[in-house]
Amino acid sequence: MTRKLDHGKLVIATHNAGKLKEISALLAPYGLECVSAGQLGLPEPEETGTTFAQNALLKAHAAAKAANLPALSDDSGLSVTALGGRPGVYTADWAERQWFEGPEGRDWYMAMGKVEGLLAEQGPDVDRSCWFSCTLAIAWPDGEEVVYEGRVEGTFSWPPRGTLGFGYDPVFVPNGKDVTFAQLDPAQKQVMSHRADAFAKLVAEQFEG
């Protein structure tokens, strides 16, 4: 039987303000007080895993132990069919840290441009299908853990469009839509995103099961 989250404080193991806002909104109906690892001044552990699940668990356990509270982490990324699934687990690494973005900032436009450059090299008829993956990991201070995985399919679009999302959202057009995640109202995105898919599984087991 999966361990359940108690109502109370939950550490969101991220320093990304956009990700914290999105996760907090998804958890708001369940009586959890969300605080980020960044707000608590916790260091970011080095992501040495080779899968989303490994990195998500690594971050969740580090935050849970440091704060002595249950922690939720999210490891997510963009995989492009024509690039053999890259950038995948290295999605954030393709967005190199830049001094003008602040100590935790990354240059996401650079990352999107790298993907576009590699696709353009393959010619105008290149397969632009791609998908976002999300792995959510919950860890408790005593070492217990649970993982939930979600996915959404789409197309890599260029040039970037929209200002409402973060990361690679401005180039991702979900199947069935003609706008990018960064052009969608956040409430619409939350219903259909990879993170929403993973959260639906988390909610079903943690709060409804």
Score class of each variant (00 low, 15 high):
K21V: 06
I23S: 02
I23G: 02
I23K: 03
S24L: 07
S24N: 05
A25S: 13
A25W: 02
P29H: 06
P29T: 03
Y30I: 08
Y30Q: 04
Y30R: 04
G31I: 06
G31S: 06
C34A: 14
C34H: 06
V35I: 15
A37K: 01
A37M: 08
Q39G: 07
L40A: 10
G41R: 05
E46Q: 14
E46S: 13
E47L: 04
E47A: 07
T48H: 10
T48F: 00
T50L: 12
T50C: 09
T51W: 07
A53Q: 15
Q54K: 09
N55C: 13
N55G: 11
L57F: 00
L57M: 07
L58Y: 06
H61D: 11
A62S: 13
A63I: 11
K65N: 05
A66C: 02
N68Q: 15
N68E: 14
P70K: 12
D74I: 12
D74M: 08
S76C: 11
S79H: 09
T81P: 00
T81D: 15
A82H: 03
A82D: 01
G85V: 02
G85M: 05
P87V: 00
P87G: 12
G88E: 13
Y90N: 14
T91D: 01
A92K: 15
D93A: 14
D93M: 10
W94E: 03
A95Y: 01
G102C: 09
P103G: 00
E104I: 06
R106S: 07
M110R: 14
A111V: 07
A111D: 01
M112E: 10
M112A: 09
G113H: 08
K114R: 15
